[in-house]
Simulated assay, not measured.
Amino acid sequence: MKPLTPLLLSGPLVLALAGPPQAADAAGGAAPSVHIQPPRVPAGTTAAWVVFDRHAGKIVATKNAHRKYRSASVVKILIAIDYLERRKSVPAADANLLKIMLRSSDDDAASTFWDRGGKGQIVVRTARKLGLSDTTPPPASKPGFWGYTSLSAYDIVRTYRYLLDRAAPKVRDTILGHLRRSTPCGTDGFDQTFGIPDALPRPWAVKQGWSGFGTTPPVRCDAKATSAPVSWVAQRATGSGVPDYGRPVLHTSGLVGKGERYVMAVLTAHPVGGTWSASVKRITTLTRDLYRSVS
């Protein structure tokens, strides 16, 4: 496996655009360049993003790259990596759990693997192996709350790059294969097409995350989905150590563009008491504008 190269975050970010550089103006200064402005983050919302261009081999857009957010369901990628890399074979029952956990963001499946793998030790192991500097387990007071893992947009992009560049084929193909087949509905009844799926054309492979909107979606995405409560969403942290405590979060991440050229992670925290529909609109607009600014 080849080493994972740095994400080239040092120094000011320059977005390279097609075409020759513009000539200096008559006064000797640089002529104004034509470029698309980065997304505007609405008041009351915090956002972080990283976009890595696999063709250029560098980050082409970044904001608050190392800001920590609670992971919500994005941590399921790390749970899957840890499970697959510690086993030579996967029983059929576990293969099905991986499928619904990654495609439909099933929480019961994630909890099964979380308990088996030693809870927060899953995060410790994967963070160490992948070199994730901003990723830490849930607070000691909430060991069962895998969604309270802390991570950053930078670390999420690094995780996808690990899958693409270093992971064994069985790990890479299993996880990315499921993410390429992400279902419109989560098994908890929430619509998980916000962000990348609604903002960008296929092809894409995505893992979404949402937390803090309660256990019942405003409009059920699929009547066939399970009605089992999602305990880690319904409960709130009572101590320190959980990023954006009390605020709802929405995250969208994955591989986008022709040939899956870009690795993208967009993390957001929304105003307390904000609605699902308004929050979904904000992150989808941010994601669309971000992609337009780099593609």
Rank of each mutant, 00 (worst) to 15 (best):
R128C: 10
L84F: 06
S73D: 01
V294N: 05
D94S: 15
S73T: 03
T112M: 05
T238M: 03
W204L: 06
M101T: 05
P42Y: 03
P20E: 04
R54H: 07
R67W: 10
Y154G: 09
G274I: 01
P42R: 08
A127S: 12
A109Q: 07
L13N: 05
S211K: 12
P184Q: 01
K170W: 11
G209N: 00
D155K: 09
T268N: 03
G195P: 08
I59F: 11
V280C: 03
L267T: 04
W276P: 04
W210S: 02
G209W: 00
P229Y: 05
D198W: 06
A167L: 05
L102V: 05
S295N: 14
P143D: 08
Y83T: 09
W232D: 10
G209I: 00
R202V: 06
D106F: 04
P42L: 12
S253A: 12
G239M: 01
C185N: 00
R261T: 01
V34S: 15
Q121M: 13
V74T: 15
A27M: 09
S211T: 05
R87L: 14
I196M: 11
R67V: 09
P32K: 11
R172H: 06
H270A: 02
S73A: 02
D191A: 13
R158F: 09
D82G: 07
V242Y: 02
H66K: 13
Q208H: 01
I156C: 04
D198R: 14
L15I: 15
S277G: 01
N64K: 04
G239P: 00
T149R: 10
P32M: 10
E260K: 11
W276T: 07
A205W: 01
M101D: 04
T149H: 07
G57H: 00
V50G: 12
L8K: 12
T183R: 06
A223H: 13
G273V: 04
D53T: 12
E85H: 06
D173R: 12
A23M: 13
D191F: 08
S152M: 03
Y69V: 03
Q235L: 13
D222M: 04
K63V: 15
V60N: 09
P138A: 06
I156K: 00
A110Q: 01
G246D: 00
L97V: 08
S231A: 14
T268M: 08
G254F: 05
Y291N: 07
I156V: 13
D107C: 07
W210K: 06
S293Q: 09
W232E: 08
L290P: 10
A93R: 15
S141H: 07
W114I: 00
F145S: 10
